[in-house]
Simulated scan of single mutants.
Amino acid sequence: MDQEKMMEQVFTEGEQELYDRHFSLRGFGEEAQGKLKKGKVLVVGAGGLGSPLLLYLAAAGVGQIGIIDFDKVDASNLHRQVIFDEKQVGMPKVQAAKNRLQGINPFIEIETYEERLTTGNAMEIIRQYEVVADGSDNFPTRYLVNDACVLAGKPNVYGSIFQFEGQVSVFNYKDQDGKWGPNYRDLYPSPPPAGLVPNCAETGVLGVLPGIIGSMQALEVIKVLTGIGTVMGGKMWLFDALAFESRVYKIKRKPDNPLNGNHPSISELIDYEAFCGLKQESGVKCISVEGLQDLKNANEDFLLVDVREVHEFRRKNMGGKLMPLSELDEFQAQIPKHKKVIIHCETGVRSEVAINHLEKQYGFTNLYNLEGGIKAYLSKFTAS
């Protein structure tokens, strides 16, 4: 049977046209394309990193793509999450992404999970795929993805971004000699203190950067699936967009890794929010969004303080007094001690940090943290 006949059996006429440039690529061709067609990839997060990941994996012809994300498309996403457009604002991200990908490549299968990846569902979902690409933006999810991949024996194509810098690696990669490479815990044995590392909403991110990093992740996924080139296992690629400089560091497995070191202590998934310090008892007094609304309805005298940054406040606010966390010491004299003061941020993490600081440094006893922050409040009530 000649080569043309063999290809017709594997690929439809439409696929042959779509993947024509891959078929003509020496060192890739129909063999690698066939591996992509059989490939199964789970993308965690359909945001800044997930957008280019999904677009290029779909266009390349990865046969089965899973997308897990619980969020909805917001107008603030559009400057970097290029898989979406203005007409999709308010839609679940997984559905909006699926619609776009089906328009790019009708020959692939797309499974969506409109939910959080949690300790309860991670193993069941991840076991269905060959490769996991982590596009998450928070430490609990990164550790969860890492641990689940190690326990399930799956490679974890990792990417992260911060302002003008990005990172890419392939964790838990099994090389041709059958040796498992390092994982996320070999690089970061423990998470930073809760609230110490700001997210993109707080510090911003150059819109093109996740496109670069996410595309690099897509490249590594394709290399893992097809076997071409050298996979970034055991290495970390760092990119500085402003200087247009990049460096590659080697990563080694550590004997004290609790997952797969000499004496492993983790054999199942744990509570990652607690592990990352997000469930610690801080002693900070709290008020629910319903409690805040009751205070407003009763016209009670209180001060509402917003500790987010100026750009966040301009985009949406609840009418509170803006006192950014980064400048809190300069504003503390304006905070009364004789009446109730409710402090909020986007989700309640930074405001807790602010209250702890004000109580320890200035002796405040009348401060309350708004549970869930402005995000929780606006999802339930209309800001006045």
Results as ranks from 00 to 15, higher is better:
D2P: 15
E4R: 13
E4L: 12
M6P: 09
M6T: 15
M6K: 15
Q9H: 12
F11R: 04
T12N: 07
E15L: 02
E17G: 13
E17L: 12
Y19W: 00
D20G: 07
D20H: 07
R21V: 09
H22S: 14
H22N: 15
H22L: 13
H22I: 12
S24Q: 14
L25C: 15
G29D: 14
E30D: 05
E30T: 00
Q33H: 00
G34C: 13
K35F: 05
V41D: 12
V43T: 07
V44W: 14
G45I: 08
G47Y: 06
L54H: 09
L55Y: 01
L57S: 06
A60Q: 09
A60H: 05
V62Y: 11
I65A: 10
I68V: 10
F70N: 11
F70V: 05
D71M: 00
K72G: 08
V73I: 04
L78G: 00
H79I: 00
R80D: 04
Q81G: 02
I83Q: 01
F84G: 02
F84V: 02
F84K: 00
E86W: 03
E86K: 09
K87R: 03
Q88N: 07
V89N: 01
M91L: 05
Q95C: 01
A97P: 02
R100T: 08
L101K: 00
Q102Y: 08
G103V: 11
P106C: 11
F107W: 08
F107A: 13
E109L: 02
E111D: 11
R116A: 09
G120S: 12
G120R: 10
G120N: 12
A122I: 02
E124N: 13
R127D: 10
Q128G: 08
V131M: 10
V132E: 05
D134N: 13
F139P: 05
P140V: 03
R142G: 06
V145I: 06
N146I: 08
